[in-house]
Design a protein around this nucleic acid. Structure first.
Length: 828
RNA sequence: GCGACCGUGGCGGAAUUGGUAUACGCGCCAGACUUAGGAUCUGGUCCCGCAAGGGGUGUCGGUUCGAGUCCGACCGGUCGCACCA
């Protein structure tokens, strides 16, 4: 056990020694049941790719680890787990590409990840690791699905989905970028499939309201707010005229029919007088009834063309608007005028009611459409009601900047402000039963179905007699069968359906031969609850033990990438709310504090395989050691902003460690310390602590370097200072600090030391060198006692050389004195 | 298009409430020690100028005794979202 290392700093030996000791001693395993001050330090678990951890992962994990180690030095019982988000399309596609089975690849990748994670010195509790692909884990993912199903929060419906013909699977809207599959770049189509959904939209209000209570970075909260997309407005009903009920031919136009009114959602009920036509989404259920016979052929062709596009292509904003009139008219409820009804694919069935009232004068899209098809444009907002002629003014573009405008061409509402008109018009419509105030969200229900292999099977059985039957909890997990032919085909049926022994099962209710659900669930479901599993990972009879969960959850601090600011974090929040409502947990916000880290770039551009600038950390760690590598990553830029990885920079942190190493090995006892060094010492203890708490690791490290520089300058290797330095370095360079700590005579781990206390009276010196400015320009300096207010007198008496000549022939008009900061003499 | 953020030496980056611009590190220059150094140590390093001094934080303007910091306009960049009615 007394591994004697040479006097020169040999990172490879030091790090190997301490890795072994930590494992032997269980240094990084808090007692989860008895911890007095639990601190759950979570980082986003990685997808275990075949390439191994890249520098970006290392940066993120190290930054989180530094924070966890710091909290431990502050006396917390820090639980810092790590695991693997190993299910999902990414693994499956890679497996297909290299012709191996994911079940074979993933364990191999995980082993490699673990080796790297240990090598870099993370304070991970390996006794509580997990992989989402482990049946002991996904058993509970399936259990969660069943709880939602039981509670009516999961449902199945046929829905238009994005279909990637290459990956042969459904994609979430978020996975489609510019009409293309985010993974493979193939153009996405639209298909109708039966899908499982979670009712996240029921939680919109809570998801939004709680944001104000969270200690999260503003950018992340803003992103979530935008994603939820709350807007206030009104639903308005338009009676239909001149349509043909049931699409039958031969009835005269222009007479009321039994067609129900068209309901639209608008945020601008104040512009209702300017609604000169209506537009429905091509999929709108009333389209068939509203289509006049003369238009039937054209309308059908238009609908088919729209359906052949993917859902995202429909949403690309700069596309030219197209549409077709249905040959029906509706009645504007406030003007009584008949306005034509059109369909156009710029109106989306998924938002609002799938129908809009078009106000071309004040909406760019409607304006463009009206221009193209020669529809009436009627201005209803103007700077002043008297300056605008009552007839429609000619506009060259939609007038959308209408702050402070008032209504015109709006009958009895002329002169109303937009806000007043919104209220009044909505109220009037409501009184007539033709409208009501409505709040809309942009968020849709969460589609969790994936027609894929590599995921947890959704635990449902379809029986011809009993219908869909949930798999009984005692039968969980529904094991993902180890089939060889896991490739998806374009049938839209999961590969699992081809596996007959698995596919056909007796109905749990009646025992008849039935079929399993063959869709697997979204990877985001795996990751939406993993934080609950870590503290309880050794329990196999419950997903999360109540006592453990109460002690450790919610997560104290969560650090991760902003790319998950919306989906992962939103889904996790939603699931926590559901689990709380169902009585499984007693909190509804899973992550008390969230911070997003920055991105590491290489030579100014994002690292990517295609650019060929991906940095493999292993080589750097081998050459420089994990401690130097960690220190460098944390020093190269602000953690929350990321930075540029450049080879040259890494030698600085290494030299710094070498210097500290020398000090430790030549440490001196006792001796008197010069005041400036004492001040620097105490100031560093304070500043480094504050900086680490704020995740300003780069400046924390800089302050430690300054302390070392000050010691060198003073020729001091004082034992107390060196010991404090070692402790403060421990979060960044843990193996190094352990070795130094031992050499200083300690037998316990440096991670069980305490962050050095500072004396608040000693963090600033009592002598100040104060700048003296004349007219705002620094002309000299004076020595002054802290707290002194005699700067002016001192400056005039003491600073002849530097200051006086600037005062010759001038009058001092004003004296600006900021205590302990500066003196500014304003002259004429 | 909308939203958020950001422009500081040769480079990565520091700068409490507006208060000595460029901390810390890299690189570079000079010197020392060396058979040697791409090791180590010492000193220097925003620009112009011998100096006194002057200029300087993307550009232009404003507020202020004082602006990297606040306000307005513009230029450039990064990241989200994107026909959301």
């Amino acid at each position: 056990m007394t591994d004697t290392l040479p006097d020169s700093y040999r990172p490879d030996q030091v790090e190997a020694k301490w890795r072994a000791r930590w494992a032997e001693r269980g240094t990084n395993q808090p007692d989860l049941d008895r911890a007095a001050r639990p601190f759950y330090n979570l980082m986003m678990f990685p997808y275990p790719s075949a390439e191994g951890l890249h520098v970006g992962n290392m940066f993120a994990f190290t930054g989180s680890d530094v924070y966890g180690r710091f909290k431990r030095l502050q006396g917390y019982d820090v639980f810092e787990p790590i695991g693997y988000d190993a299910f999902g399309i990414h693994s499956e596609n890679y497996a297909i590409k290299v012709g191996l089975h994911p079940a074979e690849l993933i364990p191999r990748n995980i082993a490699n990840f673990r080796r790297q994670l240990e090598r870099v010195g993370g304070m991970f509790d390996w006794s509580h690791t997990l992989s989402t692909t482990d049946p002991a884990y996904y058993k509970w993912t399936q259990w969660i699905f069943l709880q939602l199903l039981k509670a009516g929060k999961a449902y199945k419906k046929k829905a238009a989905v994005n279909w990637c013909p290459f990956d042969k699977t459904v994609l979430a809207n978020e996975q489609v970028v510019d009409g293309k599959c985010e993974r493979c770049g193939t153009a996405v189509e639209q298909r109708d499939l039966e899908q499982w959904f979670f009712r996240i939209t029921e939680y919109c209000d809570r998801l939004l309201a709680n944001l104000d209570t969270l200690d999260w970075s503003d950018t992340t909260r803003t992103a979530q707010r935008n994603w939820l997309g709350r807007s206030e407005g009104a639903e308005i009903s338009f009676e239909v005229v001149g349509s043909r009920a049931g699409g039958q031919a031969g009835q005269p136009l222009n007479r009321p029919t039994d067609c129900p009114p068209i309901t639209v959602f608008t945020t601008r009920p104040d512009t209702l007088f300017g609604a000169t036509f209506m537009v429905l989404a091509p999929e709108h259920p009333l389209v068939a009834q509203l289509t006049a016979p003369a238009q039937a052929i054209g309308v059908r062709a238009y609908i088919e063309a729209a359906a052949s596009k993917d859902l995202v292509a429909r949403k690309v904003g700069d596309r030219e608007k197209t549409g077709i009139a249905l040959g029906a008219t509706a009645i504007n409820p406030v003007t009584g005028r008949e306005i034509p009804v059109w369909i156009a694919d710029y109106v989306l069935m998924e938002y609002g009611t799938g129908a809009i009232m078009a106000v071309p004068a004040h909406d760019e899209r409607d304006f463009e459409f009206a221009r193209k098809y020669g529809l009436e444009i009627l201005r209803v907002l103007a700077p002043d009601s008297r300056t605008i002629s009552p007839v429609s003014s000619v506009l060259s573009a939609a007038e959308t900047e209408t702050d402070g405008y008032v209504l015109v061409n709006s009958g009895r509402f002329d002169g109303f402000s937009a806000d007043a008109a919104k209220r009044s018009i909505t109220a009037e419509l409501a009184a007539k039963g033709q409208g009501k105030p409505v709040v809309q969200f942009r968020l849709h229900d969460w589609c969790i179905s994936r027609q894929r292999y590599w995921g947890p099977p959704i635990p449902v059985i379809y029986c011809d007699a009993c219908g869909p039957v949930p798999v009984p909890e005692k039968d969980l997990p529904v094991i993902l069968p180890p089939i060889e032919d896991f490739r998806p085909d374009d049938s839209g049926i999961s590969p699992l359906a081809r596996h007959e022994e698995w596919y056909f099962v007796p109905c749990p209710t009646c025992g008849k031969r039935s079929r399993r659900e063959t869709d697997v669930s979204d990877t985001f479901l795996d990751s939406a609850w993993y934080y609950l599993r870590y503290p309880s990972s050794e329990f196999d009879d419950v997903p999360f033990d109540p006592a453990r969960t109460r002690k450790w959850c919610p997560v104290t601090t969560y650090i991760g990438g902003n790319e998950h600011a919306v989906l992962h974090l939103l889904y996790s929040r939603f699931l926590a709310m559901v689990l709380k409502d169902l009585g499984h947990i007693d909190f509804e916000e899973p992550f008390t504090r969230f911070r997003a880290h920055g991105l590491i770039v290489k030579d100014g551009s994002k690292m990517s395989k295609s650019r060929g600038n991906v940095v493999i950390p292993d080589e750097y760690i081998a050459q420089w050691g994990a401690d130097t590598f960690r220190l460098y990553l944390m020093f190269l830029g602000p953690f929350q902003e990321g930075g540029d990885f450049r080879d040259a920079g890494i030698s600085g942190p290494r030299r710094f460690l070498e210097r500290v190493w020398l000090m430790v090995n030549e440490v001196e006892e006792g001796g008197e310390l010069h005041k400036p060094l004492v001040v620097r010492w105490h100031a560093t203890k304070k500043k480094a602590a504050e900086d680490i708490e704020a995740l300003h690791y780069n400046t924390a490290i800089a302050s430690l370097m300054e302390l070392v520089n000050a010691m060198k300058e003073a020729g001091s290797r004082d034992r107390s200072i060196v010991a404090d330095l070692v402790v403060m370095l421990a979060p960044f360079a843990p193996h190094f600090a352990e070795e130094c700590w031992e050499r200083l005579g300690h037998t316990t781990s440096v991670s069980d030391a305490h962050w050095p206390a500072w004396d608040e009276r000693l963090v600033v010196s009592d002598e100040i060198e104060m700048p003296v400015q004349i007219g705002g320009k620094t002309r000299g300096r004076i020595q002054l006692a802290r707290g002194s207010d005699e700067a002016t007198a001192v400056a005039l008496a003491q600073a002849e050389v530097g200051v006086k000549r600037f005062l010759d022939g001038k009058t001092i008009r004003k004296v600006i004195f900021v205590q302990d900061r500066l003196l500014n003499l304003v002259v004429d």
